[in-house]
């Protein structure tokens, strides 16, 4: 028996919005400690890693570890049926063919239930290596989303250069070039609004804007985003989800390829 109740049902809606454009389907691994989802996008350039700890739920029970393969487009349809202020409960049997989403209104006078068929997904075994990053940037998530959106109008890829002076996002395309420089915040009043750089050595890497824009769909989950960069390893874009976990996106930098 698996059951997870989230009073703040809107959170699960936001989480789904944050991953559904990258992944068409994904396995939700449920265990006593919580729920995990890890999957590569279809192009195999980015990876999504989501963790929701059991203590972040209002009620959580998982008798046996189970894996639920879900079509995220179908799940999105179901989540659209859930009001923003409704309470969500996910339920499944021990070896489930289906998962049930139950939505309750706050005063308990309306209950809707949707049962969704699960999929048999072949899971790739993905190990995320522990990595020391040369630069870790914390910045307002809204600012990051804005920069990604603005610069992607000009070119397909974006250069992120981090040095002790600050971060520079730049792009170039047919119509010209654009860049945004952010300086480290000198006095931190509100941590949510600060740009904080922890740097071991300067890094410059190029990424496809398309993916960064997709990652930025997690902006409603957290006011702060952190970007971790190192040469020759994927960028990590992390959004902490208050009291319950995080969603991390990994994106391989663009590299010159002799094959293409």
């Amino acid at each position: 028996m698996f059951e997870a109740r989230l009073v703040q049902g809107a959170l699960l809606k936001k989480i789904l919005e944050a991953i559904k454009d990258l992944l068409t389907e994904a396995s939700w691994d449920c265990a006593q400690g919580g729920i995990q989802l890890q999957a590569m996008d279809n192009s195999h350039v980015s990876l999504v890693s989501l963790t929701l700890r059991s203590d972040g739920f209002d009620k959580y029970r998982c008798d046996r570890n189970l894996t639920m393969g879900m079509n995220l487009a179908s799940m999105t349809k179901i989540m659209k049926c859930c009001g923003n202020d409704e309470i969500i409960t996910m339920k499944a049997q021990d070896e489930p063919d289906t998962v049930t989403f139950m939505f309750e209104s706050k005063n308990g006078d309306k209950i809707s239930e949707y049962e969704m068929k699960l999929m048999n997904l072949d899971q790739d075994h993905l190990g995320i290596p522990e990595t020391d990053y040369a630069c870790v940037i914390k910045m307002p998530s809204g600012e990051f989303a804005r920069i990604c959106r603005d610069l992607s109008q000009f070119g397909e890829s974006m250069v992120i250069a981090c040095s002790k002076n600050g971060i520079k996002f730049s792009t170039s395309g047919d119509i010209g070039t654009g860049n945004v420089k952010l300086a480290q915040t000198s006095s931190v009043d509100k941590e949510e609004e600060a740009v904080i750089i922890e740097m071991q050595e300067p890094v410059t890497l190029t990424f496809a804007c398309k993916y960064l824009n997709n990652f930025a769909k997690a902006t409603p989950l957290s006011p702060v985003v952190s970007l971790s960069l190192s040469p020759d390893v994927p960028l990590v874009v992390e959004y902490k989800i208050e009291d319950i976990g995080y969603v991390r996106y990994y994106l391989a930098p663009k590299i010159e390829d002799d094959d293409s």
Partner: peptide, 25 residues
């Protein structure tokens, strides 16, 4: 294995980076 295509560029980097740890299976 999912797209049935050769990996190029960033895909290779991603796949090489991920496999360095033992699978969680």
């Amino acid at each position: 294995s999912t797209s049935g295509k050769k990996l190029v560029g960033s895909q290779k980097l991603m796949s090489a980076w991920l496999q360095k740890e033992s699978p969680k299976k």
